[in-house]
Design a binder for these strands. Structure first.
Length: 840
RNA sequence: GGGGGAUUAGCUCAGUUGGUAGAGCAACACAUUUACACUGUGAAGGUCAUAGGUUCGAGUCCUAUAUCCCCCACCA
């Protein structure tokens, strides 16, 4: 498919550009029409019926794709931009291969495309990279669910290899759907640079990054309390937790001289520390470290008094026992006072032998009441509250109730000092000690990354300040396997831990066979964090010793990216992690501006959810009203950061707007034809060098050019809603309703009209007006032809399809939709409106 | 508990440094071999949530209050 352009155009394209882009595009029409002295207006046939987005859009999309103008290297070859030009680059937030695109994706893609097309038309080296995200847990659990439902099998029944085969099959299908959908929106993405977060290139980047962080001591393995999802059988990160309100019973038990409250009796077997506030008057006779014997579930135990200020004296009795293995807060207390930690519940949610023969092996749900019964029989139950409302932690992806566990996992240390050898980040000095947290803070604090709207700064900083080490290992199979191998000694202990980009086998180690790879995979956001540079040739194009970037590489030419348009829901998951990874890997920022769009909601204000019902498909809407209409809706309906209600009525209105442009074109071409027919000497074809403007038209030109300036400024500042609104208002209310109406009078004059029954009604009455002079007519027809072209150019980033169609019609008299595939193949890429220069 | 956002016409929302209130849709009246009914013209519709304050001047800045939404944290 790349051949077409090169075969037909090749080197010639560049030459054609200059001549055809400037003047005389309409000369063919003029020649044929001048042959007859007078005849009825002859306008291109396609204009005679309303604009049909459903048939034109797919044709334009195809032509745009074949033109390869989305590839900046092709634009350079065509002379539309150069390597000296300023770059403008965006990465598309890679959609998860868990399903299909929803309207939120459509929003991000539309706004990004408006900016990319705008900057490309301004002559910048514009690159927009597409891709998809493997979304580890989300994808695997979706496939597991289906397998369980259809075949009643678990992942362990299938085995690692077979499950991965199934997941990949599913991911491929999703990917293909997503690509089709994305293209249908008219997105000018450079598909030749498409990437996947789990492909070989990205795997190499991930391993390189892991190894580097491992060597710097920033990735470590440690036994810490983590969020264990018993349903998904994996750990998850703190920000993958969703809290849900739950009503349960709340129990008060006698614990020696104290009364303790709990909602989770099943964790209480190992509780041998009782904690209270040092200033609590009620318990002043007890001392920190004092040991007392108390009667408990399975008989008497020795309990130790701990006094700590984190205890809330107001809550319950002001006394609690702790379970360090299964609670984050308790774990921290245990660490602080070096207390024993004992596991009570296993990873499948069953009680361990420590619970005694009576309870061991029991599931949490059944054990709870039995334990309470036993305590009651011993007279240790004081009180039971029935309606205790609290939040329980659940896993975002599987819905499983989080069971905190102490486990050996891999972490990224965010507070550990290390030396960053090179840095462009303000406030982070090269060669000096810093931390990942400081890098994340400095990038935004110094203004190198601008968050739009600005109030997200506060959210961002707050998150960073409270950030703990990032747990990056997952016990699932779909994802980047941790590049660590272990060699076991004869006694079963680990004799050697090997971390490298190449496996022992790939590294040709003689003892390669003795190594076993770590079973775990990486958090999906680890690979997404590298996205801006792993898609541009890192690490090959980057010298990790000197920080030099290989000249001519994408990394040198397009990084940092210019803007990121994404939803605020992934500010921590992704936006922050990219800043962390980019700062660490290259001492720079991933992007200069982040534009957070709001959520797309339905008319009832409900969140559009892909998993439940009201998902909404951008393709469906595009087929009904046109992608142009949907894009215009997205542009116009959203101020940054505020939610958008999807209003089909409005989208319909923008379909009408596309048709309005269609009819404006038809009308102007008709007028031009009429003038030509009436007056042979008239210059009624587009003349780029026309200068005999009438006084009135000089004003109109000034007004129009002022508007273009404003729109340019709005687009530079990413105020899509203001830019689009101004174009819309000018086109419809000013240009069509006022200027075109006035033009009718200039060309033909107006007869007096009197309705005796209703003399006051302006709609029924008007006075006679004379037509303009020949000079005024000549000037006006040129003004209309010039302004029409300008409007098509300016509307193009918003509505690329209808404008490209009209561009073809005004320049060749032919609709792209009506052309044969041979004719379409002959189109010079540089002649497309998409390649046209933005007016300034 | 902490933070952020919102509150403007019947509905959905704009309103960039303070300078006489805007759009789309809906509703109303009218026009009609009209470039376009996927149309045009006109009229109507708002104490800009409430109460104070700063200012010559506040939808816009400040302080409270109310209601709604979101995010973060989470208590045994």
């Amino acid at each position: 498919m790349n051949k077409n352009i090169n075969d037909n155009g090749g080197a010639q394209n560049a030459q054609n550009t200059t001549s055809s882009a400037t003047a005389n595009n309409g000369s063919n029409q003029a020649d044929t029409n001048n042959a007859s002295a007078y005849k009825a207006p002859n306008i291109p046939a396609p204009l005679l019926s309303p604009y049909k987005p459903e048939s034109s859009e797919v044709v334009v999309i195809d032509i745009h794709e074949k033109s390869q103008l989305s590839n900046p290297d092709i634009c350079i070859k065509l002379g539309l931009t150069s390597d000296e030009a300023e770059h403008f680059s965006i990465i598309l937030p890679p959609p998860n291969v868990t399903g299909t695109l929803h309207l939120g994706h459509g929003l991000m893609a539309s706004l990004s495309d408006i900016s990319i097309r705008f900057e490309r038309m301004r002559g910048k080296r514009a690159l927009w990279i597409p891709g998809t995200d493997h979304a580890a847990i989300a994808t695997q659990s979706k496939v597991e669910k289906e397998i369980s439902k259809n075949e009643g099998k678990s992942r362990y029944d299938l085995g690692r290899e077979e499950l991965l085969r199934r997941v990949e099959e599913f991911a491929q299908a999703s990917h293909d759907t997503i690509v089709t959908q994305t293209k249908r929106m008219g997105t000018s993405l450079d598909w030749s640079r498409e990437a996947y977060t789990l492909d070989a290139t990205r795997n190499h980047a991930v391993r390189t990054m892991f190894k580097k962080m491992y060597d710097d001591g920033l990735i470590y393995q440690g036994s810490r309390i983590v969020n264990w999802d018993p349903k998904g059988q994996t750990t998850i990160a703190d920000d993958e937790i969703v809290y849900k309100e739950d009503t349960s019973k709340f129990y008060y038990f006698k614990y020696g001289p104290f009364t303790i409250g709990t909602a989770r009796p099943e964790t209480k077997f190992g509780d041998k520390y009782v904690v209270m506030h040092p200033k609590d008057e009620r318990y002043k006779q007890y001392e920190h470290g004092q040991k007392i014997t108390v009667e408990w579930i399975n008989g008497p135990i020795e309990a130790t008094i701990i006094k700590d200020e984190t205890i809330d004296m107001e809550f319950g009795t002001g006394v609690m026992t702790i379970t360090p293995w299964h609670s984050g807060v308790d774990f921290q207390l245990a660490e602080k006072y070096k207390l024993d930690k004992e596991q009570i519940i296993d990873q499948k949610g069953r009680l361990l032998p420590i619970a005694g023969p009576e309870f061991a092996g029991m599931k949490i749900s059944e054990a709870r009441e039995k334990i309470v019964e036993k305590l009651a029989s011993k007279g240790l139950v004081e009180k039971i509250e029935d309606k205790y409302i609290h939040n329980i932690a659940t896993a975002e992806r599987t819905g499983g109730t989080i069971e905190p566990q102490i486990m050996k996992q891999w972490f990224v240390a965010v507070n550990k000092p290390f030396i960053l050898p090179f840095s462009d980040i303000k406030g982070i000095e090269a060669g000096k000690e810093t931390t990942l947290k400081q890098i994340m803070r400095a990038a935004v604090d110094g203004g190198q990354v601008e968050l739009i709207p600005e109030h997200y700064n506060k959210t961002y900083f707050h998150w960073i300040d409270n950030l703990n080490d990032w747990c990056i290992s997952r016990q699932i199979w779909y994802g980047h396997r941790i590049p660590v191998w272990y060699k076991k000694a004869e006694d079963g202990t680990i004799a050697e831990t090997y971390c490298d980009i190449l496996s022992p086998k790939e590294a040709d180690r003689a003892d390669a066979d003795e190594f076993v790879q770590d079973e775990d995979t990486l958090d999906t956001w680890f690979s997404s964090g590298l996205w801006t540079f792993s898609t541009m040739g890192w690490p090959e194009a980057f010298d990790t010793k000197t920080g030099a970037i290989q000249a001519g590489s994408d990394l040198a030419r397009f990084h940092p990216t210019s803007i990121l348009i994404t939803g605020p829901d992934i500010i921590f998951f992704w936006v922050a992690r990219m800043i962390l990874m980019t700062g660490y890997a290259m001492g720079t920022v991933p992007y200069e501006r982040v534009y957070f769009n709001g959520l797309v909601r339905d008319m009832q204000g409900r969140k559009m959810s892909k998993s439940f019902g009201n998902g909404g498909d951008p393709v469906e809407i595009s087929e009904k009203y046109g992608a142009d209409a949907l894009r215009m809706f997205y542009a116009m309906a959203t101020a940054p950061g505020t939610d958008t209600k999807l209003d089909e009525n409005k989208i319909k209105g923008f379909k009408h707007f596309a048709n309005k442009l269609w009819n404006i074109t038809r009308f102007i071409l008709t007028m031009a034809e009429e003038q030509k027919n009436k007056d042979v000497s008239s210059t009624a074809t587009y003349d780029a060098n026309f200068s005999a403007w009438s006084a009135k038209d000089i004003e109109l030109i000034a007004e129009r050019d002022e508007l273009i300036k404003t729109i340019t400024k709005e687009l530079e500042e990413l105020r899509y809603h203001l830019a689009s609104d101004k174009i819309y208002q000018y086109t419809w209310s000013r240009f069509a309703d006022i200027i075109l109406e006035e033009s009718k009078i200039i060309f033909n004059g107006r007869a007096e009209k009197v309705d005796a029954t209703d003399p006051e009604n302006p709609a029924k009455n008007h006075t006679a007006l004379p037509a303009g002079t020949q000079e005024e007519k000549n000037s006006r027809i040129q003004f209309l032809l010039h302004t029409l072209r300008t409007l098509l150019v300016v509307v193009h980033p918003f509505m690329p399809h209808v404008t490209e169609e009209l561009w073809s019609i005004i320049n060749t008299g032919k609709s792209l939709n009506d052309m044969s595939s041979e004719e379409r193949a002959k189109i010079n890429a540089a002649d497309l409106l998409m390649a046209h220069k933005w007016p300034n």
